[in-house]
Design a protein around this nucleic acid. Sequence first.
DNA 1: GCCGCTATTGTTTGCGCTAACAAAAGCATT
DNA 2: AATGCTTTTGTTAGCGCAAACAATAGCGGC
Lengths: 345, 345
Amino acid sequence: MTEDGKVHLTLRDVSEASGVSEMTVSRVLRNKGDVSARTREKVLAAARSLGYVPNKIAGALASNRVNLVGVIIPSLSNMVFPEVLTGISRVLDETVLQPVFGATHYAPETEEKVIYEMLSWRPSGLIVAGLEHNDAARAMMRNAAIPVVEIMDVDGAAIDANVGISHHRAGRDMAREITRRGYRRIAFLGSNMPDDHRARKRLEGFEQGLSEAGLALAATEFYSGGSSLRKGREMATAALAREPDLDFLYFSNDLIGAGGLLHCLEAGIDVPNRVGLAGFNGVDLLDGLPMHLTTMDACRMEIGVKAAEIVAGRALDGRTDLPARIELDPKLIRGETLRPAPDRA
Amino acid sequence: MTEDGKVHLTLRDVSEASGVSEMTVSRVLRNKGDVSARTREKVLAAARSLGYVPNKIAGALASNRVNLVGVIIPSLSNMVFPEVLTGISRVLDETVLQPVFGATHYAPETEEKVIYEMLSWRPSGLIVAGLEHNDAARAMMRNAAIPVVEIMDVDGAAIDANVGISHHRAGRDMAREITRRGYRRIAFLGSNMPDDHRARKRLEGFEQGLSEAGLALAATEFYSGGSSLRKGREMATAALAREPDLDFLYFSNDLIGAGGLLHCLEAGIDVPNRVGLAGFNGVDLLDGLPMHLTTMDACRMEIGVKAAEIVAGRALDGRTDLPARIELDPKLIRGETLRPAPDRA
DNA sequence: GCCGCTATTGTTTGCGCTAACAAAAGCATT
DNA sequence: AATGCTTTTGTTAGCGCAAACAATAGCGGC
């Protein structure tokens, strides 16, 4: 079947092969407008036998509509984002829109470039992780005249719409849970990436929560590069060596938290009584460790769903009634690395 | 600065603002052809102050060149693929090409749709995971007249170029290592997805390797859904309950393997003497477990790099001297869950 | 068979840009 | 100042498709 020879098949080829006008072919292939069943069959048969694939570049230019949604996140290898992407896909799959992904690697200049590239394809919407962008990026998104949803974080001013959790609050709430349970010598262990604003905000909120209880961080430990169990182990080891009387380790994510937990268990430390631990994210990949790590769910899937709903609703249905800001509730997952709370009246 | 008002800025707007022709603006923004420094400055200033973002849709149509490379993989949330994507990005970042990702969720019809969508954007190349595709997908890729690289797997016939490892061989080699070390009651534990052809090939190779030693699988255990430590634990528990005299558990990936390992350690089983374990992939995220899991490196990063090099070399430099098939060597990572090999003459 | 409709098909135009070619400007040499 | 170059800028046409409008076919009622 599938003739070669021609390098680029166009509507004209299908039109000639089926004996109708290009416009009719176009209508058949897009299911747009009325076409008689007989003609439709003829056209589809011709298109199929030629192996014709429509040229969306030309279609987009002619119709001034591009059914793409740019999704810009720091990293594809961070376990945090796949779940957000799943939420986005789940919603967009029900529409004509398609997500296109770009990664910034936590670098503002890279983010600017990625946004520029995305916008140069004139997408129907943009979903961007975080509220921090450089001026150029911010200006481009403001001028783009498409729905822009900033996700993950709500601590700051959004350009357009915003869906996420307050990382500041997440940190503060965790601090309250920890202090309320009687832990007093508390360490923070996390990444030292200056552009991981959400981790920074959690730390700030955490410190605020501690200070409300009259406490300050007893130790901090930072690492660079990607997370892994090993990094968590090393940090826990180092922190406990330096400050042996620590009684709580708060990690900036679950993977390093799990590593820290493994270290403590191996070292024969009584968890959660002698030392408690907590992470962040609610990564269920890790469910299955000897002990459930205390963590806080970041509502990742739901963030993706809500963000996609806003983009789809606005871009496709022209809805203007959709919320511009959705703050979700990170929920504490108690696990077994946090002592039970004391009874209170 | 950035004037609003106009919804769509075009070259003409920049041209009028800077007092030169559209063509000259186009040349400046693409760094193409000679433009005097003075004109260049004028144009760039105008473009910047207007907030102009070129329209790649129009550019691509006019030039018949689209600097995108479609990358089609089963899943973004499988820990296996981020590393491949990293390899691809690393190479393409040095070129004008940009990767665009699509996920098939291991469903051939979804794959067909994703390939169709990708091709309708007329990309410069395609990188597709696996060698198994339905007829329509295969025909489209054959007719696309662009470089198509099938990755991960080399056990089968490729459409165009092919980079990967032999999963059949990986399974067989692992069986040889295991039997050589004296394990005899061996179980396979993996996913039951009918369309995970690479896992299937590993199992087939594994069985062949066993039969060379006069053995057969003593047990199999399958799961559905995503991998997690918990799944691995459950499968190990179930397999050992059913066949208490098993002395080896071969898992189809590292995550479930790690779960199995945690179960064995907790149950007080002597690893690797009473029971040995192995996984597949070489996921270094998990480095940091109480014991290093034996596994086999799937060369994921290198697969991405080589595939991208082939696409870039062919699409950009018109090179025809690039290899059409690259088989990489999966390397055994011994870890500590496999007994030492007996000495041999 | 003619009218007036609706269902179906066709024609023209232009989306915003770049390739190819055309023209003009700059500049040293004679 | 005219010549022959190179460098810089402009003009024309068309990429493949879909919107808007135009035309034709089909069909029932009289």
